[in-house]
Structures are given as structure tokens and as C-alpha cells.
Nucleic acid binder design. Structure first.
Lengths: 347, 347
DNA sequence: GTTAGCACTCGACAACGATGAGTGCTAACG
DNA sequence: CGTTAGCACTCATCGTTGTCGAGTGCTAAC
């Protein structure tokens, strides 16, 4: 599709623009060592590349900048994953070397390290509840009419909620209910908890406990909210402000509002998009993103999973002019390490 | 100190500047109904007020803006707390009317409502651990070598951590330890947990359990981190971007970095500052704030407490040009409501 | 096929002047 | 004597103009 020379020049332009953030002219490309042609020749090729849709001109007599199509081609065919620095490798590995590591903490920590290494904003979507099962349920009275309910999943995730106790229920009755729930519901996938609750438990509870209706309602309030509730960790949000493309307050505002709105964010990071190089790494460039607020951003995501079951996602958000080589490489490393960790953890 | 007319004019200027964000001239003050003097007279008074340090002039032939001293005087002596709108009162009250309410959720919810009502950024410092005591301790094995440890306090706060189990310890031994801890440590203030752990438990544990040393270390890792660890909730961070004084990206960046850094933020919001009107409400104007990043912001904080014991703080951060009347009023309401709630909750 | 040369385009930037809001001062008024 | 009208002066803002230079597209020569 493209000649070797065109690919060379396109690579040079994208690389240049990524590091300078300014339209790149034929002269500056020619001056670089790696393209041995005169500015005039390069100009001709640039004109062709523009006609093909790989480059854009902000205005006549400015240099060229890569278009979406240009970035996409660059990511799919041109980008060369150069080696990570020793420090980067070290920091990534050391993260997984720590002994005491809860799944969520690892994800969170990974995201934060990524943000520091790249100077972009990282978004981590915590492990979902898909294949997690109930490990333990507990109800601890606090005052006469309130109690704190605790749910622990087999992944070590702890969810808690303060609830009101219907009046007229004794402590022993509460204990009975909790015992019943634990024996009957332990091992049940969280998403099936509610249906199971009605199917199996309702009858038995009526036998043992008065106020059965209230109790079921109580348990329901505890379980509700868990399904849609997934933790989102942000890190390095201020990094965005260093990028010249975000010197405009309005643009920041729209992006920030997106970042603050968890449900929308989950949708953005979770929806499928263009494939990048390597396994499980997705690269979404500019308008490929579903949300308008980040239509001039690129989002690179890696999913982590156990036994082929997708658990969550880690993403890096930056301007379309992103250091793809470095970021893709980092994400691949992270993805691998996470896979190993999860496998070991889930055993 | 100031004549009645000077106070009137100062009030008018501050009010005007708060709503317009632009230097206010003598003419515009004269035009308002509430000050019945000609621009010339007002100019004379303004000159005097400037000399006294209450006003500043950005440059010659611009209007005046209030200085720190001006704001301070305004807050201390001039501001008139006009009534809150029905909607505001309603939203505040309804927040505390919900039946199922954990302490932390209430604080969080309050902060978020405040941010919405005021269009400023709210910062809530969750309940500290000062007078909270251990309610329950639990250790749930997840895999062969990991377990999730759960601590519940008498306030309903739940803290959890995944820990590694030293190899060679049986489940029954774990149970023994947990039981021992619960019987011995329940009711002990969290801050004293560690010392108590050594004093009372060490000996007994040696009797019952082998691997006592490892177990103590394990329990210690769970308890560590809790003391300094206080939740900070932010809400309405993007509101800041609406203010004209923050159209500059650099300024946003420094503030945002402060907001992201929890320890610094705790220090800022926790340190004592100038008193405002009413009980427990503090108003820190501009440089009165300890942190340079918010030296042109005002921070209004209200503390909530039980039995005179200070538990936490809720603050509103905005430009020095803040709607003090509204915000102080809101904060007073919130402070009162919170006090009532806490009293009822802590009973 | 590649390159040098040249006219042309267009944003960035500085200089300039007009505009208008606001002041400070002085003199007049009740 | 306090208050006000009038007036000259200041200074930021904004639109205009002109220069500068980076970069292009085209043509002709190598």
C-alpha cells in the first residue's frame, strides 16, 4: 500500500510530532539522520501522504501532523517497540514481587506506577464480580438499631454497609439468619445471589425466624449495589496538564468531568475498540473512543484475566500524540505480569 | 474603626466583586440602590479604604478589589447571612433523614451536596480513629497462604487487608488467635491497640499457639497503616474550573496536585485558622492558608464532633472571592445537622 | 528520479492608535 | 463643611497594520 520510503517518512513525522507537539516540516525531517532525502523530495512524499489521508495540514504553509489514519497505521505497522529502560523494568517487576498483595491493591498500584512512568493518566477498572463467589457473610450489631454488614468474596474483596435493623429482632435471630446465609450461600456467584436468596432461602428462613420478610429485605439492601459497583482508580490526573494540547481550560473540564463520572468512565474503558500489537492490548485513537470528551485523546488498555475470564482493565489516557512505542511496550509487560500474578493468586 | 458609611461602601464593593469578579468602580457602586452617594464621594471613601489597607487597585485607573484585610473585615463584621433558599434547606435536611446511614457515608454525601449547592470544591475529612474502639477482628483464609483480615470499629468503619499467612500454621491455630484477640482487644481504642497487643496478648499467645512471633507480626501488619490512614473525600473538583480566576492552567495544576496528595491535604484542612462567625466554622482567607498552592483561595471548614471530641472536618474550597454569606450559612446548617446526627448515632 | 530555486501563503508577533472605564483633583453648591 | 459636578489624566483592552519566517508547491535543471 505504501512504499518503503513513504513508510520511513511517515514514521519520522509521527515520531517527530510525538516528541515536539508541533507541525513538522520537510526541512526538519531531512535534517534528521535517518531519512537521507532533501526537503523537496520529502515534500513530494508528504503531499502524497496527505492525499492518502495519513497526514493533515493545520493550515497552508504549516508543517504536517499525523491524522487519525496516520496514527492508526503507525501503531499497526510502523511502531518499533524499543527496549524499556532498566529502571522501568525494575519498577514493574518489583511491584509484583511484594509478598503481601491483595488483588485490588496490585491493580491499583500498577496503575499508579504506570502513570508515573509515562506521565499520562492511568485508569484502572478493578476486578469485576463476574466469577467471584461469596466467601463469607457477617452482620455485626453496632447500636440497638444499626449493624454493619460485611461481605467477603473468594477474591478477598470486602464490601461493607451500615444497615438499619428492623425493630423487634433479637440478636439470636440475627445470628440464625447469618448462619443460614453462610451455609446456604457460600460459594454462590455474587451475580446469582439475589435469585438464590429467594429460591433456596426464603422457605427455610420462614421456618426458623420470625420477621422473615424484613430480614430478606435487609439482606437484599446489603447485596444491592454490588453488581454495578466496580471500583475505578485514577492516577496521575494532573499529568494531563503538562501536555500542551491541554493548555485550554475548557478541554480539561470536559475530560475531567468524564473522569469524575464513574459509570461513564467504565463504559469508555470497557467498550471494545481497535486492536493494537500483542495480546489483549487495545489502542483507541481519537474518535475511535466512544466518548466525545476524549475524541482527541488516545486510550491504551490492557485487560487482565484468569482462566480466560476477563476480570478488569487498566488503561492509559493521553493525547493522540502519545508515545505509543513506550506505552504499548509497558502495557504488554504489565499485562503479562498481571496474568502471572492472577494465575498464582487464583490458583 | 470604620465609619458607618465606609462599612456600607466596603460591603457594597465586596458584594459586587464577589458576583462580578471584576474590579469595581465608584460609578457602579453609586448606581446600586443601597448606597445613595455620588461617584465622587464614593471615590473619596475608596481612597481612604485603600489607604487603610482594605482595598487594592490592580493598576491605576482600574476599579478596586478587596484585599485580604478587606475580606477578613467583611467576614468578621459585615457579612449578612441571608436566608437559605427552600431548596437548599430541603436538600440538606433530606440528607440526614435517610434511614440507613453509616457515618462515613453521611459525611461523604454531605460533602458532595455542599459542592453541588455552592459550585465550589468540597473536601471532607472522614472520622478519625481517636476515640474509636475495636469492635471485631476477623481472619478469613482465602487460599492456602493468604487470608483477608477485617477490622470493624465501634463506629461501623470497616478496614480490610489481604495478608500472607506464615506457612505451617493450622486453621485451628488461626481461630484460636482470632478468638483470643477478640476477647482481649474488643473495646480497646484503636490507637492503643499496638501497645496493648504486646502488653496483654504476647504472653497468652505463647501458651496457646506455636508460631506466636509470626502471628503477632501478622496482626501487626494488619493494624499498621490504620492510624495515619484517614479517608479524604473530594467532590466537585471540576467546579473550580468555572471560576474565572482559574482559567490559567498552571494555577489549576498546583491546586490539583495538592488535592491529589492526601497527607498534605489533611494538614491543610486540619490546621487551625481564623475564626468565622458561629460555632466551629473557620474561615481561612488567602494567605491565611498554610499551603502556598491555595494562597488565593478561601477555605471554609466546619468540624463535626461527638461529646466535644473532634471527629473530622468538612471544608469548601473556592476563590477568595467567595460567596461568604451563602457558604457560611450553609456550613452552619451542616455543622448543626451533623452534630445532631452524630449524637444520635453515637448515643 | 532527485534536487535546487523561487514565489507564495499564512500564522505569530510587535507596534500603533482608538476606546472607554475609572481615578484624582479642584471648584462650586447647599 | 460635607457633597457633588466637571475635567484632565491613566491605563488596560482591542482591532489594525506591517514585518518576519517557517513552510509549501511548482518548475526547471541535474
Amino acid at each position: 500500500m505504501l512504499t518503503e520510503r513513504q513508510r520511513l517518512i511517515l514514521t519520522a513525522i509521527v515520531d517527530d510530532y510525538i516528541s515536539s507537539a508541533e507541525p513538522v516540516g520537510s526541512r526538519s525531517i531531512s535534517k534528521r539522520g535517518d531519512v537521507g532525502y532533501s526537503p523537496a523530495t520529502i515534500r513530494n512524499e508528504m503531499a502524497d501522504l496527505e492525499e492518502l489521508g495519513f497526514l493533515e495540514q493545520p493550515h497552508t504553509s504549516a508543517g504536517r501532523i499525523p491524522s487519525h489514519k496516520g496514527y492508526r497505521y503507525y501503531v499497526d505497522h510502523l511502531v518499533r517497540l524499543d527496549d524499556l529502560s532498566k529502571e522501568e523494568v525494575h519498577r514493574l517487576k518489583s511491584m509484583f514481587a511484594e509478598k503481601i498483595t491483595a488483588m485490588e491493591q496490585v491493580v491499583q498500584h500498577t496503575a499508579s506506577t504506570l502513570a508515573q512512568l509515562t506521565n499520562y493518566t492511568s485508569i484502572a477498572l478493578g476486578p469485576g464480580m463476574f466469577d467471584t463467589t461469596l466467601r463469607h457473610f457477617q452482620l455485626l450489631p453496632l447500636t440497638e438499631d444499626t449493624a454493619v454488614a460485611i461481605i467477603v468474596t473468594n477474591t478477598g474483596h470486602v464490601e461493607n454497609k451500615t444497615v438499619a435493623i428492623p425493630p423487634g429482632i433479637s440478636t439470636s435471630e440475627l445470628d440464625k439468619v447469618v448462619n443460614l446465609l453462610n451455609t446456604k450461600l457460600t460459594g454462590v456467584p455474587l451475580i446469582k445471589l439475589r435469585s438464590q436468596l429467594y429460591k433456596e432461602i426464603g422457605d427455610e428462613m420462614n421456618k426458623y425466624v420470625s420477621h422473615a420478610q424484613e430480614m430478606i429485605l435487609l439482606v437484599e439492601t446489603v447485596l444491592s449495589g454490588d453488581e454495578a459497583h466496580r471500583e475505578v482508580y485514577l492516577s496521575g490526573t494532573t499529568n494531563m496538564l503538562n501536555q500542551p494540547e491541554f493548555k485550554d481550560v475548557d478541554r480539561i473540564k470536559t475530560i475531567w468531568e468524564l473522569l469524575e463520572e464513574t459509570p461513564a468512565l467504565i463504559k469508555v474503558i470497557g467498550s471494545p475498540g481497535g486492536e493494537g500489537q500483542g495480546t489483549g492490548i487495545q489502542v483507541r485513537i481519537g474518535q475511535e473512543n466512544t466518548h466525545a470528551a476524549i475524541s482527541n485523546c488516545s486510550l491504551i488498555t490492557a485487560t487482565y484475566s484468569v482462566h480466560g475470564q476477563n476480570l478488569g482493565t487498566i488503561g492509559l489516557l493521553g493525547p493522540t500524540r502519545m508515545e505509543y512505542a513506550k506505552v504499548i511496550n509497558l502495557m504488554q509487560q504489565v499485562s503479562q505480569q498481571l496474568a502471572v500474578f492472577m494465575e498464582r493468586y487464583h490458583k
